[in-house]
Computed example of a mutant assay.
Amino acid sequence: MGDAIIREITLADNVQVARVIRKVLEDMGAPKVGTAYADKALENMYEAYNMPKAVYYVIEDDGQIIGCAGVAQLENHDGNVCELQKMYFLEKARGRGLGAQMISRCLDSAKEYGFEQCYLETMPYMEAAQKLYKKNGFEYIDAPMGNTGHYSCPVWMLKKI
């Protein structure tokens, strides 16, 4: 394995990114409805984040995309809150400290964009992810914020930035 690099998504990455996200969700046995699996944006992630105050990053290792995550304004929410979105890592990306680097990169961007809080939604059995989020200052909250359409993600977390 070479040195993995974190960089912004390009149009050419769309197909690989959709493949990574679906593969991780399938491996985890996630429902295909009410999760990112069914999101229309999945095939067009570059376009989906090609707007102000939004960015999507990929982790490239030896020419292959092995992980991804982004931040954007939380949908259907009035506050100055962004959402950490679609953070997924293939098995070969895990345990290498890349998750912490990715969160840090996303939060730096969120801060640059002027957001005050960062929200995320996840699944109860994604325990490694939750541990990582907690380690990075996210705390559990009792109810969802905004309306992302991800009704199959009943764990909500928030961090001040």
Rank of each mutant, 00 (worst) to 15 (best):
K92W: 00
A93T: 03
A93D: 08
R94N: 05
R94F: 08
R94E: 09
G95C: 07
G95H: 04
R96P: 14
G97C: 13
G97Y: 11
G97L: 08
G97A: 07
G97V: 11
G97R: 11
G97I: 11
L98Y: 15
L98I: 12
L98R: 13
L98W: 11
L98C: 14
L98Q: 12
L98V: 08
L98H: 12
G99W: 06
G99V: 10
G99F: 12
G99L: 13
A100K: 13
A100Y: 05
A100D: 15
A100N: 14
Q101L: 15
Q101R: 15
Q101K: 15
Q101M: 13
Q101S: 10
Q101C: 09
M102K: 09
M102F: 00
M102N: 07
M102C: 09
I103F: 02
I103E: 03
I103N: 03
I103G: 03
I103W: 01
I103C: 04
S104D: 08
S104P: 00
R105H: 02
R105Q: 11
C106Q: 02
C106D: 02
C106E: 02
L107Y: 00
L107H: 01
L107V: 12
L107S: 09
L107Q: 10
L107D: 05
D108Q: 07
D108K: 02
D108A: 01
S109V: 02
S109M: 04
S109W: 03
S109H: 03
A110V: 01
A110C: 01
A110P: 04
K111Q: 06
K111H: 02
K111E: 09
K111F: 03
K111N: 10
K111P: 02
E112R: 14
E112Q: 14
E112M: 05
E112S: 08
Y113I: 06
Y113H: 03
Y113Q: 08
G114E: 04
G114P: 06
G114N: 08
G114Q: 07
G114A: 07
G114W: 04
G114K: 06
F115W: 05
F115I: 02
F115Q: 04
F115G: 03
F115S: 03
E116D: 13
E116C: 09
E116T: 13
Q117M: 14
C118G: 12
C118L: 10
C118H: 11
C118V: 15
C118F: 05
Y119N: 10
Y119C: 11
Y119P: 14
Y119F: 15
L120N: 01
L120V: 01
L120P: 01
L120R: 01
L120W: 01
E121L: 08
E121G: 04
T122I: 12
M123I: 08
M123W: 09
M123P: 01
M123S: 03
M123N: 04
M123H: 13
M123V: 07
P124I: 06
P124K: 02
P124C: 00
Y125V: 07
Y125T: 14
Y125W: 15
Y125K: 14
Y125P: 12
Y125H: 14
M126T: 08
M126P: 06
M126S: 11
M126N: 11
M126A: 13
M126D: 01
E127Y: 04
E127S: 11
E127G: 14
A128E: 14
A128Y: 06
A128M: 09
A128T: 11
A128Q: 13
A129F: 10
A129W: 10
A129C: 09
A129G: 15
Q130C: 07
Q130N: 10
